[in-house]
Nucleic acid binder design. Structure first.
Lengths: 296, 296
DNA sequence: CAGTGGTCTAGACCACCAA
DNA sequence: TGGTGGTCTAGACCACTGC
């Protein structure tokens, strides 16, 4: 019951007292920072399935609330990918909590790969541009040796057009069938061998202005382009993998026969708050590469 | 170098009384906690872990050392799968560190799925037997609905024999070619449809006494059997996935044509300390199932 | 009710980095 | 040298579980 005090939203809604107060007293009585929390974050706080009014305390630890506040700042673009965020002490002062509580919030965000800590330097917003995390979502690796030993990666954009979403594409992206989406097709080649054929669909609104030319001109991961040009940061994804045989057109692009089994990889990528922002259907040749997955 | 004072006294580990001791004077004067270590234990202390001549890259935080100690107890079977381990306070007393340090060690072990915390009850050794974590390593899921909606899972052991390891199997298991291994073949069917054909190889020594009959009699995940009958706990694994076409025998077992593309999933599973203990080659039908992978 | 894990705080010191 | 994250401690209180 007394822990309710730590739940910013809940308390805010019910009593209009918009800040967290330690039960052991002695904390300051005013908090400007907590005061401008938008009430729109109701939906994302607390354990799911909690129905207010029935005495169920929507208990959410302080550090979780801090985590959400940081998440909102990330989402709002207060700190951009690759930039430093304020130090733990600064954030602690801003949120009127101890440094240890901020630390725990950042720990979780770092564990989810949204932030990257660097001792002595600060905490940075994760990016798809950084050299050592390029192609974070691509699990296809060469059978032998390092990625660099196979020669350069070539990207060629085949197509980028505006189409109406079919039912399944709309469903995956949280749109309505017929809504406008961008459809991109490209081929990735490793050491001159076409290895990946991808079709991807993006909601037209956030990606307004994306063209095949811009895609072709950009050197670096596509997700890095999305970050810098459209402010869309892919944060999480899930893939459904099957074995398939290619149709005639696919054979041509990948230069394989119609009897060559391929991996079909359907990926849905999400931004913050699990909002789906991309559907991608890839065909992977696995004659000299394999999909590598770690289980733990 | 200065942090070496936190290094654990390995002499005492051997005698069942592991604890951390200060080895440099400077900090221990200001550390009351460390100061109340009985002097009777201090006299057995050497310059622990400090390798003369080389630099000192051997910096390991206290909680990492505690983590290793807990790991060793797990490995030694001091606590068995499904059992509770001592409470944080008990472990803190045993290792002569604060409860918070033990907590951080356990946090990491829980993040690696070696331990499971349950508020109010204790911390438990993870197991493959538990209902809600069954088939932790199996990522093949039905295309629609829940696993239970597809009818029962049938396991049939086709074969279990002792063979000499080929070069590649020996390499994967850290053995020498020609070493004795157990080879098991089985089929998993879902709702009557044969879906997974697996060959797996186990080092013969730790699995001495495993027979097809024992495998067939056991109801539950194979990894649970390994735990309870052979004391081998699989903790981590990695899979290499390809698309392939089956040969004649494989077609027969899976009841598919030779033109049906299948997922080839090669898994190496490891026990504690990353020791490989199983090589498994699976063929998955993906006509009504798919391999589901979460990226983050 | 006692015991367990979970949260929060405060303060100290260490390792790392850049200026 | 000062600032940042990283480690460690101590003590308080809360939430959950089972007797």
């Amino acid at each position: 019951m007394s822990y309710i005090r730590y739940d910013v939203d809940y308390y805010n809604i019910q009593h209009g007292q918009p800040f967290a107060v330690p039960t052991t007293g002695k904390a300051s009585e005013t908090s400007e920072t907590m005061a401008h929390i938008p009430t729109s974050m109701n939906d994302s706080i607390g354990p799911a399935g909690d129905v207010p009014g029935m005495g169920t305390p929507a208990f959410s630890p302080l550090y979780q609330q801090i985590k959400i506040l940081i998440l909102q700042s990330l989402q709002a673009g207060e700190w951009k990918p690759g930039e430093v965020i304020p130090s733990e002490n600064e954030l602690a002062a801003r949120f009127r909590v101890s440094q240890g509580t901020v630390r725990k919030a950042i720990d979780e965000l770092a564990a989810e790969n949204l932030l990257v800590r660097r001792q002595g330097k600060g905490t940075f917003v994760a990016t798809h541009s950084a050299q050592h995390v390029q192609y974070r979502f691509l699990k296809l690796v060469p059978d032998s040796g390092e990625a660099s030993s196979e020669g350069p990666t070539q990207r060629s954009i085949i197509d980028c057009k505006r189409v109406r979403a079919s039912a399944d594409i709309a469903r995956a992206l949280g749109l309505r069938a017929g809504d406008s989406v961008l459809q991109v097709r490209r081929v990735l080649s490793f050491g001159g061998v076409p290895t990946i054929l991808e079709d991807l669909w993006l909601p037209a609104t956030p990606f307004k202005g994306l063209t095949a030319e811009r895609l072709a001109d950009y050197h670096g991961p596509m997700y890095a382009l999305f970050e810098t040009e459209f402010g869309v940061r892919m944060v999480r994804a899930e893939e459904k993998i099957r074995a398939v045989l290619p149709d005639g057109e696919q054979c041509a692009w990948l230069k394989v026969t119609s009897q060559t089994p391929l991996l079909s990889v359907e990926r849905v990528a999400h931004t913050y708050n699990d909002v789906p922002m991309e559907l991608r259907r890839g065909l992977y040749r696995t004659d000299s590469h394999h999909y590598l997955n770690a289980l733990s």
